[in-house]
Simulated assay, not measured.
Amino acid sequence: MKAPVRIVTLLAAVAVWLFATTTSALADSPASPDWPAPPERSVLDNVLLFGGSTIGLFVLIWLFGLLTARNNYVPPEPGTDVEVAPGDTAARH
């Protein structure tokens, strides 16, 4: 599989996932004429409703990564001791 195909596949999967997970937010009011019409949402309200939680999740993961990346394991410096193989013959690798 070539790199452009992978990128297009990833972008398409992200687009489908975003569409599938955000369409349920449109059902924030009843669809019956018996109920009063809800107030109209502005563009900013829609951006916050559909993208706010996703952006917040990215920020949360980014902060978690920053906090945990500072404490990486650093192995001790190698010693000057020479380990001798048991017996008279050279070690076989």
Rank of each mutant, 00 (worst) to 15 (best):
G79K: 00
I7M: 07
E83R: 12
N72P: 06
V16P: 08
R70Y: 04
A27I: 00
P76G: 06
V5K: 10
F19G: 06
A15D: 00
W35A: 08
G79H: 05
L26Y: 05
T54V: 15
E77Y: 08
D28L: 04
A12F: 02
A69G: 06
N71K: 11
W17F: 04
Y73C: 09
V82A: 06
V43K: 13
S24I: 02
I55E: 09
E40Y: 09
M1D: 11
P39H: 10
L66G: 06
M1Q: 14
L63F: 07
V14T: 01
N71P: 03
D81I: 08
D81A: 15
Y73K: 11
S29P: 06
A31T: 02
Y73F: 14
D34H: 11
R92E: 08
L60P: 04
W35D: 09
T54Q: 14
L60H: 09
N46V: 13
L57S: 15
G56C: 09
N71I: 08
A85Y: 12
G51S: 08
A13Q: 01
R41H: 12
A3E: 15
G65I: 01
P39A: 09
L48F: 11
I55H: 11
P38F: 02
K2H: 14
L49R: 01
F50H: 00
A85L: 10
G65Y: 05
P76K: 01
P36V: 05
T54N: 14
A37D: 10
T54H: 12
G56I: 03
T23Y: 10
W62H: 15
L63I: 09
V82K: 07
V84N: 12
P86K: 01
L48S: 13
M1P: 04
T80Y: 01
P36R: 07
T21S: 08
G52L: 05
P4D: 02
A15S: 03
A31I: 03
L60T: 11
G87S: 04
S32V: 05
P76R: 00
A25L: 11
V43A: 15
R70N: 04
G51I: 00
P78F: 01
F64Y: 13
Y73T: 10
N71W: 08
D81S: 13
E83I: 12
A12G: 02
G51Q: 06
L67A: 00
T21G: 06
A91M: 12
L63P: 06
W62R: 15
V14Q: 00
L67F: 00
N71Y: 09
L26T: 07
A31K: 01
V8W: 03
V84G: 13
A3C: 14
G79V: 06
W17D: 05
W35I: 06
V47R: 07
L63W: 08
G52M: 05
A3G: 14
P76Q: 07
L26R: 03
T23N: 13
P76S: 02
R92Q: 10
T89D: 15
A85W: 11
S24C: 08
L11Q: 01
F58I: 14
P38C: 02
L26A: 03
P75V: 05
P38N: 00
A3Q: 14
Y73V: 10
L44P: 08
F58C: 15
V16L: 14
D45F: 04
A90V: 12
